[in-house]
Amino acid sequence: MKAAVMVGYNKPLEIQDVELAEPKANEVLVKMSATGVCHSDLNALNDESTPIPTILGHEGAGIVAAIGPNVTKVKVGDKVALSWVPYCGTCEFCITGAVQLCESAFGPMFNGTLLDGTSRLSKDGQLIYHNSLLSTFAEYTVVPELSCVKLPDEMPLAQASLIGCGVATGFGAAVNAAKVTPGSTVAVFGIGGVGINAIQGARISGASKIIACDVKESNLEIAKKFGATHTINVSKEDAETALKDLTGGYGVHFAIDCSGHTRATEDAWRGMRKGGTLVVVGAFNPALALNIPAGGFHRVGKVIKGSFYGDTQPYRDFPRIAQLYLDGQFMLDELVLDRIQLDNINSAFDSFHDCNCVNVGRSVIEFKSVFEEKPDDDKILIVS
Rank of each mutant, 00 (worst) to 15 (best):
F330M: 04
Y309I: 02
K302I: 11
G295R: 02
I232H: 10
K274P: 00
P286T: 12
S307L: 05
R299M: 14
A348H: 08
Q341K: 10
A242G: 12
Y309R: 06
S351E: 15
N356W: 08
D257I: 07
G328F: 14
N285K: 12
V336K: 05
G361C: 14
G295H: 04
G276A: 03
T247L: 07
N359S: 13
T277L: 01
H253Y: 07
T247R: 05
F367D: 01
D350F: 08
K274V: 07
F308M: 06
N285Q: 11
C357P: 00
C357K: 15
G251S: 02
A287F: 07
R263D: 12
L326V: 14
D245G: 11
P319H: 01
C355P: 13
I340F: 01
K236G: 10
H261P: 00
V281T: 12
L335W: 06
D343M: 03
V279N: 07
S235D: 12
V336M: 08
C357H: 12
R362M: 04
T277E: 02
K302V: 10
T277Y: 01
S363D: 10
V336P: 07
Q341W: 00
R273T: 03
N285Y: 06
S259V: 09
D327G: 10
Q313L: 03
H298L: 07
Q323G: 08
R362W: 10
L342I: 13
Q329C: 08
V279A: 07
L288F: 11
H261S: 13
Q341D: 10
T312L: 09
G310W: 04
D311N: 14
Y315I: 10
K274T: 09
A348F: 12
G361S: 11
F330H: 01
R273C: 04
A264F: 11
F318N: 00
V303C: 11
L335F: 06
D317G: 01
K244L: 06
R362C: 03
K368N: 11
P314Q: 06
Q341A: 09
K274A: 05
L335S: 06
S307D: 03
F352T: 09
E334F: 06
E237I: 14
I292N: 12
H230G: 10
S259N: 06
V279P: 08
P314W: 07
G301Q: 09
I304W: 03
W269E: 11
R339S: 15
Q341Y: 00
R339T: 10
